[in-house]
Design a protein around this nucleic acid. Structure first.
Lengths: 408, 408
DNA sequence: GACCTTAGTTTGCGACTTAAAATTAGCCTA
DNA sequence: TAGGCTAATTTTAAGTCGCAAACTAAGGTC
């Protein structure tokens, strides 16, 4: 069912999509340059871009004068063509952000979230989306879609089914709930937050330009977004990339997922702190996880115990990364998530060394390990990316509104 | 560079490829049925298949009478259109097999292989290929290509570079060596043996019909072929799927790759035997690995130690499989390789239970775990599959001989 | 102001798929 | 043995598409 190119019109759609995507990611570009990059003839580029301009998707953006000869007119995606909303459903609150097509933020709302029923959360989302759109004074009709990142696995079927144990969701059809809670019929895209954050790193962060990347995300939980051949890898039911619950110490520490020896139990924030607690033999000062980890890292220069725990953490993490390297053979590893960034900026050498020790030589030699550039607030941008990807993918074909499209 | 559909001719090529592949995998089929499956109009199917018949790629194969009305004429790929050769370079010998286009074996040669230089092996391969083609009386010109499966990682670049520590190869450009050792200019396709074996399971074995599969191969070494979206996953430099050197016991048993705690050190044949040896506290009876493992499994009903070692093996293996499930979210796991089949047929329940214990619930619920159906001799068929895949992929476009194509 | 250079457009054509009409190719009935 | 009927292919007549080549636009140089 997948490779069903058939009519000659699909060709056009494909070329529209290619040109639009090129403009989006590498724009502004002249028609001439587009022709060079896409391999399409100048005639076709002219023809297709003309259509895109007529449709309002693309606008001219000044010109660059050549030394002798007609100056090139630059084209770029029209940021005002439409708007997208990104929602980050976190464990303690939701963030809703409105963007224009160039993913420039126009408005943002934060709402605290006390543990409540999925239906209540859905209503909250629907209301917040409506509010953020209204507050920015954006006409509802220009909203192209709403992307929602959630903290759990999302099975993509006819409708997305969310399993998020940390907030007590099991088999929640979030898409349907939000749709029925909101009066607007904006297309909804529900996706795992790690995947949306990964997509954000790919589009705007440390993943740019690469086609095979693993974005490792470490916070309270541990996850990964695996990008293969330029697209987020989903697997059969879209729950791929559950790196955190990969066994790294057979029979080791119990994990909150119920299994023993998961990577998350060693390098997740809670796992690190708990190991430190045990090593010191007494409780830590109270405080939220994030600042406690920061304090731990800070104390490493003074406390031998802290230093050792962090050293061990780097070892486990390196082994975990090496597993990704051996299995996926990426060209780049991006280390993200708040704890990942904290660990990475103080221990990167050690992490890299541990990775080298555990990975096979040849796949190891392909990779570079980098820190993420976006931070955990990228979940919302990443979610907003989903409707944009859908737009680029179907090239906003005016003839076929395409209710639902997988992102690229 | 990937999604470059441009001209209207690519469309035709694509449709040729689709129809030819459908006939190859699901044939024989009538034009009518082809039209139904491909979504192409009857006119186009008629047109394209006519071309394929003219080119000799497809032949009519009887007809099926309908109840009143013109009977459907069945079409199938012409097995005699060409021939392909599959080579299995093992650690102790090479197998060379000749097939027709339907992958029916026409001739086979085995050659023992004493450790020798890559150049010598290349000459041996070239000579054996020539011999097998001659012995079957097949005209050299009908040989469409030669696939070579090797026991090590293969970096696919402009030319394949082989790293096979077990036979002492490091950075061997096998393709070039074989090409210069043989007088025929048949296209060569070099690939990791685990991947070719996996491809064979996908085409003819336990993987049929699924799109996301992991074929786990356990013998002396441990590897995996990961199939995502119907195609063998390669990663950035084609060395993905090195499951055996994934860390499963951080700081555990030393592995021959130099790292500690690799899965292979626990569930590879040598790892199993060594653990048994240590558990018994004395040496085992001499014998080759394969029969020793068989004896160990056989003795499990009498020896508590043997039973315990196997039980532990199932545990490690289950955890390893669970890692694949969590990371790749496949719909099917195929357990293969001689040791994998041996373990699987005596311990499948235990392995499945251990997998369930370590995998997340939702991805776990998607999978079925099955035994491979082909055995390790499938490496050669799998290798022969490579030139066939190339043929199907470019649909044997008469205008463009396509020197080198990635397999589907 | 004549002439060159480069960017973008038009025009004419060959290739492609499709829907609809026309043609087979068997089977059945009288 | 001739109609008649049904259903699979083929043919025919559009309608699209991308491309090469010819052409126009816009800016320099001398």
């Amino acid at each position: 069912m997948a490779p069903k190119r058939t009519t000659v019109r699909d060709l056009r759609r494909q070329n529209r999509s290619t040109l639009l995507s090129t403009l989006f990611f590498d724009g502004p570009l002249s028609r001439y340059e587009l022709s060079r990059r896409s391999g399409l003839s100048a005639a076709t580029v002219s023809n297709v871009t003309g259509e895109l301009v007529d449709d309002g998707l693309v606008v001219e953006a000044g010109s660059v004068d050549s030394d002798g000869g007609r100056p090139r007119v630059l084209l770029r995606v029209n940021p005002a063509f439409g708007h997208v909303v990104g929602v980050d459903v976190g464990e303690t609150g939701i963030k809703v952000e409105l963007f224009d097509l160039s993913l420039t933020q126009l408005a943002a709302f934060d709402r605290p979230l006390s543990p409540s029923s999925p239906t209540a959360v859905a209503s909250l989302i629907a209301a917040a989306v409506r509010d953020v759109v209204d507050s920015a004074g954006v006409p509802a009709s220009t909203v192209l879609g709403v992307g929602i990142g959630v903290p759990g696995t999302v099975e993509q079927g006819t409708t997305a089914v969310v399993h998020a144990p940390t907030i007590g969701w099991d088999g929640v059809r979030l898409e349907e709930l939000v749709a029925s809670a909101s009066e607007s019929a904006w297309p909804l895209y529900v996706e795992n937050g790690a995947k949306t954050q990964g997509q954000a790193e790919m589009w705007f962060g440390a993943g740019r330009g690469a086609r095979h990347v693993v974005i490792a995300l470490i916070g309270s939980g541990v996850g990964a977004a695996v990008v293969t051949d330029g697209g987020v890898y989903r697997g059969a039911t879209s729950s791929a990339g559950e790196w955190g619950h990969t066994t790294i110490v057979y029979g080791g520490r119990p994990c909150r997922c119920g299994a023993l020896g998961c990577l998350e139990a060693y390098v997740g924030a809670e796992g690190i702190l708990d190991r430190y607690r045990k090593a010191r033999g007494r409780e830590l000062a109270a405080g939220d996880e994030q600042s406690t980890v920061a304090a731990l890292i800070d104390s490493a220069s003074r406390s031998k115990t802290a230093a050792r725990v962090l050293e061990e953490t780097a070892g486990y993490l390196g082994a975990g990364i090496a597993n990704l390297v051996n299995l996926f053979n990426p060209e780049r590893i991006v280390l993200g998530g708040w704890a990942g960034l904290a660990l990475g900026s103080h221990q990167l050498d050690r992490i890299v060394a541990a990775t080298r020790a555990h990975a096979l030589r040849h796949p190891y030699e392909q990779i570079s390990i980098e820190l993420g550039r976006l931070g955990p607030d990228a979940v919302a941008v990443g979610a907003a990316t989903l409707p944009v990807a859908a737009l680029l993918d179907r090239a906003a074909d005016p003839r076929k509104p395409a209710p639902r499209v997988d992102i690229a």
